[in-house]
Nucleic acid binder design. Structure first.
Length: 343
RNA sequence: GGACGGGUGGGUGAGUGGCUAAAACCAGCAGACUGUAAAUCUGCCGCUCCUUGCGGGCUACGGAGGUUCGAAUCCUCCCCCGUCCA
């Protein structure tokens, strides 16, 4: 049942740069929402003796299940899933925290000689994990509140001008209307006393000890959009509205982070303000399409991805993904339980 | 048969003589993004040519004519749609 570990056959090229343990493979499945990452991930994990590590900023929240398209109970029974349902709705989560938690999970899987299969919808989180983040101070809510207040008191473009004084390079790269990024940039400058451009030049703490093998799902655009539209209807049929009603009844405020996820705010206002439900559904479909497009833009830049032009639940795509992984992973990753399945 | 209202670029829709290839919004496309990223933001969006420029040409506001230096905008006729009256 236990795989023959690659650890037993150390190769110089796989050695940890600092002389630590040799690198073991890690599978990362990237792709836009509704492309079938979960389905493919579960199946691959079964074939290759792995477990799922979710890389998604929304599925970490408990209680927000249908709208975030979490893996089904059945899928979770078949293969253990990590970093899902780990937070209360009131908790704030960041890319940096994701990285820390994920490293913990990865080390655990390595010890147990299991293959990590990341299903990644949140590009920033994947990058934070794999490439690391620069040594930066964490958010300062006090400073942020001050900045926001001052921005309101002044003319539009105020924060952009402030940043331009502290770090012209950063100001040139951030649009005057992009509040979150302006605030973070100023925050870093204030807290470190250095321009954010300088700070970003510092070394990023790359993930060590793992060798990422990336698979990308890129279905044809029109088919993806159609599936998004259908999936939204299915979510409604499966009781999304009831889920939101329950969350409201539990007293979870609308200002809470997960209520900013696609659909949750809309459905909440439908329930509380009686906004038109069909329009609501249309708006959700639209927002999801836009989101998928942003994901595609992000992942296109991702290095070293083996792209497959279809959905992750398509037999042909599944087989091609498995075949590619067999070539990349080398010996020792065939699951005894499932070897030969899916043929 | 009569009275109004209306027909604008993929959609909604503003525009009542030149500043209009035509506001705005949506859809679409492309992009940025190192700590709330399902967030936030930017560009393009009739066709075409090149020396890619606040560049040239062509086509466009239901149809056909007309007025005018110049028309989506004014006039005439026709066609369609909506509402109301017979």
């Amino acid at each position: 049942m236990m795989t023959e570990s690659v650890n037993t056959a150390p190769e110089v090229s796989l050695l940890h740069p600092s002389g630590g343990p040799p690198a073991v493979p890690l599978v990362a499945i990237v792709g836009p929402t509704a492309s079938g990452k979960s389905t493919l991930g579960v199946w691959l994990a079964e074939q290759l003796n792995g477990e799922i590590v979710v890389c998604d900023s929304t599925q970490v929240y408990r209680g927000f299940d249908i709208g975030t398209s979490k893996p089904t109970a059945e899928e979770r029974r078949r293969v253990p899933h990590h970093l899902i349902d780990i937070l209360e709705p009131s908790e704030v989560f960041t890319a940096g925290e994701y990285r820390e938690r994920a490293i913990g999970v990865l080390n655990d899987l390595r010890q147990r000689k299991l293959l990590p299969v990341l299903t990644a919808g949140t590009g920033l989180y994947l990058r934070a994990l794999l490439e690391g983040l620069a040594e930066l101070p964490v958010r300062s809510e006090v400073l942020r509140a001050q900045l926001r207040a001052r921005a309101e008191r002044n003319k539009p473009g105020y924060l952009h001008r402030v940043l331009a004084r502290m770090d012209p390079t950063a100001a040139a790269r951030i649009a005057a209307g992009d509040m979150p990024k302006l605030i973070r940039a100023i925050e870093i400058c204030v807290l470190t006393g250095k321009p954010i451009t300088e700070v970003h030049k510092g070394v990023r703490a790359r993930l060590e000890g793992f060798r990422p093998v990336k698979i990308g799902l890129m279905p044809p655009r029109t088919a993806l959009y159609e599936r998004i539209e259908r999936r939204t209807i299915e979510m409604m049929d499966r009781g999304w509205l009831a889920e939101v009603r329950t969350l409201i009844r539990r007293g979870i405020p609308a200002t809470t982070k997960p209520f900013s996820f696609i659909g949750y705010g809309d459905l909440r206002s439908h329930l509380e303000a009686k906004s038109d439900l069909p329009h609501c559904v249309t708006a959700i479909q639209q927002a999801t399409r836009r989101y998928a497009k942003r994901q595609i833009t992000w992942f296109r830049k991702e290095q070293g991805v083996h792209w497959l032009e279809g959905f992750g639940d398509d037999r042909g795509i599944m087989r091609r993904a498995l075949q590619h992984l067999r070539e990349e992973l080398g010996e020792g990753y065939e699951s005894a339980n499932h070897a030969g399945a899916g043929r």
